[in-house]
Design a protein around this nucleic acid. Structure first.
Lengths: 198, 198
DNA sequence: AACTAACTGAAATAAGCGTTCCACTTGAAG
DNA sequence: CTTCAAGTGGAACGCTTATTTCAGTTAGTT
């Protein structure tokens, strides 16, 4: 599949070269943060990240300027494969199947990366915000496609439908009692509710 | 309407009497906290509560033992009238109307008291937890009633439906772009999705 | 009015956190 | 091998907040 957009942020393009250990530690800090973000119960402090990475706290922060930028980069990194999968659903044959698949993935991703929502609250996170826009656009496209094929009702604004899906996935993932059964029920109710009346 | 449960926590029953100013300040601290909790953008610090109440920080905390208990009491207080309204819907004639009304109220309440969700994260809040159980039971009863009358499908577990409603209301209320239009669309989709197939 | 236990609140304390400092270490160029 | 700018991390700093202290104030009793 053709790569439609540039998501990599592994290294800054036009900067002066940095020492090998600095590059390695930047990677270690990023990986440590991603590891912590993927745990359901974790405190994302600089101290904790540094411990996970086997580095000093100062080194961890310096690699990205500050903690906010580090978390932003880590979240964006975690988001990338998910976004890729979301875009892939657009080439599936059946829009209903595509929508179901995306919803399931959305819920599972948010369940597995529960802490991300917490961490991003009230932060200015350029990388993550850009990813979110791409994701939103993908969801919009998917809803538009589903509408054209009579899978989704058109008496409700498409943007509102997309927003509904996003928010509601978050809610299910957030639930203390999240389970495959709850997820399945949720998707059934939403898909039925979104179907046009015959 | 008969009062079915005891929700008041205005004063501790069997304790030794306390001085008049202490009682008054306890009330002031509680009211100040409730006021702050009802604002969408507010920092609920002891300092802020004390300022709002016109008291010293120490006095505010001491009245309830610690900040956690104070917030717990304030949230429980805010929840009480809402719970009463929820229970009232059970005596409406039409279960579908009752369900719609409760959903709308649920979303509006959570929108207006947005900060509550933030504040309760990771706290042990006995009073609030008890209220939540009552609310959950009410929602369960309402769903059971709606099922008996063919308003809600019975191929999905009633508890799951109730949980769905609660979580999803939270999600809509939480949304940055919450609006009457979004709320209306959401309720339409959910109600349609919950209806049995004819 | 006098007395005292309860109560108050400004200030001190404690604890958590991100960031910065700086004496020391190390990669890599010559 | 030398050299030194780049890089490191333990410690110090600054900031925010909940909690405790304690000298002074006040409600309520006699």
């Amino acid at each position: 599949m053709e790569r439609l957009f540039q998501l990599s942020n592994s290294s800054v393009a036009g900067d002066q070269p940095r020492r090998a250990d600095a590059v390695r530690n930047r990677r270690l800090a990023l990986d440590a943060t991603k590891t912590l973000l993927a745990q359901r119960e974790a405190t994302i402090t600089v101290e904790a990240i540094a411990r996970q990475a086997g580095l000093g706290a100062a080194t961890v922060v310096r690699a990205f300027g500050n903690k906010e930028a580090l978390v932003d980069a880590a979240v964006a990194d975690l988001l990338d494969p998910f976004i890729q999968r979301a875009r892939d659903t657009l080439s599936e044959p059946d829009p209903e199947q595509a929508l179901r698949a995306l919803l399931l993935d959305l819920i599972e991703f948010q369940s597995a990366h529960w802490i991300i929502g917490e961490q991003l609250r009230g932060l200015t996170v350029p990388l993550t915000t850009a990813r979110r826009a791409v994701l939103r656009q993908t969801l919009d496209d998917l809803v538009a496609w589903a509408r054209e094929n009579g899978v989704v009702r058109d008496d409700i604004d498409a943007t509102v439908v997309a927003m509904l899906l996003g928010e509601v996935s978050y809610a299910i993932a957030r639930s203390d009692e999240a389970s495959p059964r709850l997820t399945e029920s949720f998707i059934t109710v939403i898909m039925d509710g979104l179907r046009p009346h015959q």
